[in-house]
Nucleic acid binder design. Sequence first.
DNA 1: GTTCGTCCTGTAAACGTTTACGACGCTACT
DNA 2: AGTAGCGTCGTAAACGTTTACAGGACGAAC
Lengths: 355, 355
Amino acid sequence: MCQTLFENVYESSYVTGIKALAQHLDLSIGTVSRALNGKPDVKAETRRRVLAAAKELDYRPNHSGRSLRHGRTNTVGLVLETGSPSTLAGDTFFMHLVDAMQETLAEEGLDLVLLPCRSADDPIEFLRRHVTRRMVDSIVITATRRQDERIAMLLEDGTPFLALGRSETPGAYPWIDLDFAGAARDSVDALVRLGHRRIAIAAPRRDVNLAHIYMEGYRDALAAHGLPVDEALILRASGSENGGVQVAEALLRLEDRPTAVMLGQELMAIGLYSHLAQVGVQPGRDLSVIGFRQSPQLRFLSPALACFALDVRALGKEVGQAVMALSADPVAARGIGRVWPLEYVPAPSVQPPVR
Amino acid sequence: MCQTLFENVYESSYVTGIKALAQHLDLSIGTVSRALNGKPDVKAETRRRVLAAAKELDYRPNHSGRSLRHGRTNTVGLVLETGSPSTLAGDTFFMHLVDAMQETLAEEGLDLVLLPCRSADDPIEFLRRHVTRRMVDSIVITATRRQDERIAMLLEDGTPFLALGRSETPGAYPWIDLDFAGAARDSVDALVRLGHRRIAIAAPRRDVNLAHIYMEGYRDALAAHGLPVDEALILRASGSENGGVQVAEALLRLEDRPTAVMLGQELMAIGLYSHLAQVGVQPGRDLSVIGFRQSPQLRFLSPALACFALDVRALGKEVGQAVMALSADPVAARGIGRVWPLEYVPAPSVQPPVR
DNA sequence: GTTCGTCCTGTAAACGTTTACGACGCTACT
DNA sequence: AGTAGCGTCGTAAACGTTTACAGGACGAAC
């Protein structure tokens, strides 16, 4: 029976993949495929045999073949920028986010791969190469800029994508971002409630998006409390530890020193604490400090730093679901725009000002 | 001319990929492919036209199709464990390593993708799914264990792989690892030279490989100096900041307190410093401390921590080259086993013991 | 004028899957 | 008895590429 298959045995000396399975079972590859994929029109006994043989021969379907046949790869890519110290990269926060994302995606049989984009790479060319008609069928971009050409490119290209971070690039696209404005507002509220009036703020350079929104929340909150905005109290520095040092230096140089400072990046606190310690200024007592995101690296600052907590795993799941919605209904997904809440966590670094 | 192509135009209303290019140019897809891939047997004028049209139509070859045709994907995967605080994940060190790796791989037209393996995943099943006959044609595993079943599986499977970290799993396979033994030796040497005799050591749990080698270097170096090994000075704790706290507590509990401690994980220093500060013990003066790897998170410790520096980018390039050697000559590559040097960086946290 | 070579191009098979379709045997109904 | 239906399975096309091979045009050499 089934001579064609025996012919194949003699034609190609070494067969592989599903064909080998079919030969071994003396079935057609079509039937084997159907059995493996749970299609209804296959006898229970046959399916059992196929599954057993697949396990025995350690059959694993070729990803390229499968992707080529369906129009999709069942893989979503998350591009992260190596080299440049972005908000997300090089952070346990990020690892947990990815972990939770993957958990959600796995439920739908989707894989997640991280695409490291070198700082030397052109981010546009990088996306072109990877995304469209390539390894992944949808993509998550991180560390969005206020003007982000990647978004314009992806929109034009029609590639399903999700932005982790807002942007002012025109067009409707799905994004999820942290509530920077809310964090700024809550910071101001907490400080004003304790009696602070002169509140400094530090944020990274202008081109990164969060700085802009964080600033806006700061101004709005001050206005809501009827307080003036003193431009001298608005400090610019990089978001790294070194930026914190610069902020501390700038603060101490001010003639009418503020009684509190809020930091728009979590790592700044480390440099700030360090420099304050050198000059004998104690956080909390001499200067109230509110950081940004909770981070394991901040847990050992003394006195403990007031900052904002968020449920990373829940965020990761939300991101994962948004990505899946992307594939399911690209049009509807374009309406997704979600601000993820940050919860203020009081700590001794914030105290009433000394008069 | 060329009626078959015109037939295609009317048959399928919407064509895509190289076929669309061919139609647009009124050429066969074979010729177009040859022109794009720089094959010699194509007229210069034709090649020019094809290249121009490819750019105009923004043609990007389908990865699945290409991979299916060649037996390879031109992609190497690096699996990193999310969730668990590994040596590499969640670290700017790691990002720089990836950056340098990618730079090297890009020269040969290879892509690098990061495969996040959830802590909940079975690492073996994860590898099976991704590596063999799938998205990547070679793989880099990180955070090797002393007994690592992944290595055994990959060896048996025949998948080209590189281990970032040694293992005692039998078999010849390529690996690159940091010189933990050398770091331990140099630490002991530096401390003994200053007059320290009772030197404590802290390292993570036994199952991770580096701890074992680090310990061995410690014992050997002590023996070389004719010093006894006091088992009470060998401390076990996790490699995290919390581990450092535990180490500090254990140190202070010892009846005959050592004058120095060496830490097998860079993050430990943070917790250690923090706890020492709480009880008024000053690093350097009261207890000399040598950390492990340099890390931006340690830069703001005071007094500055003595630790070990390494050229991350050079290491990344070495890893990249090793991966390429893997594909070129799998047999020869199995001999690769490289210990990457660590350079001792003195700092005020190490001083002569007070008598 | 035939033959040979060179240059260029088209043809078609192949990579490993999935799936629409048809074929076959069997049961059960009219 | 004929046929409709169902269950099961094989066949073959298709996904987008690459490439071995063949073939056509053309010029040069005999």
